[in-house]
């Protein structure tokens, strides 16, 4: 698995070919459509993230020490953004996720081009994803203590 820095750089490179925003959105829509659907168990209010104008559901598991996120949104462009985040973070250890800043969001203009209320939603999403990593890391450390 490539490291988080390289994966982010790949995304920045991918986005650099788009000449205008409509093309970027078309790409995000495509990513949104390709995002595997979330387990219906997590498609409930309990897993909703506050702070978005659209709804975003998020859940994460730890499988063999690696984070596996699943997510969904009722707005397709938002779902595309979620899909990007999932693509970047899935398969990495909680420690890797917590050590690396998600610089690609700024680099591809997602945060600067979304208005504050919108990017609050995006920030809330990132925060929640990191919180999951933190919780799994804490659990792992605790388990190690007991061994």
């Amino acid at each position: 698995m490539t490291n988080l820095k390289d994966i982010q750089q790949n995304i920045v490179d991918e986005f650099s070919v788009f000449e205008d925003w409509i093309d970027r959105y078309n790409y995000l829509i495509e990513l949104g459509n390709e995002l595997p659907s979330i387990d219906p168990r997590y498609h409930t209010t309990e897993y909703l993230i506050n702070g978005c104008q659209s709804k975003v559901w998020l859940h994460a598991d730890l499988v063999d020490g690696k984070m596996v996120y699943q997510a969904d949104s009722d707005a397709i462009i938002v779902k595309g953004i979620v899909a990007l985040l999932v693509k970047v973070l899935n398969g990495h250890t909680p420690a890797e996720i917590l050590e690396n800043e998600l610089t690609f969001i700024d680099a591809i203009g997602l945060s600067q081009n979304l208005s504050p209320t919108r990017s609050n939603g995006l920030l809330a999403m990132v925060k929640k994803m990191r919180l999951y990593a933190m919780a799994y890391q804490a659990r792992e450390l605790k388990n190690k203590d007991h061994e």
Binding site: D74, I76, V78
Partner: peptide, 21 residues
Amino acid sequence: NIHPYDAGMILDKMGIAVRTG
């Protein structure tokens, strides 16, 4: 079946200011 938010984001990038929500 389009989410208003998606439409608002695309209209914005076309220079058209609407409100969604």
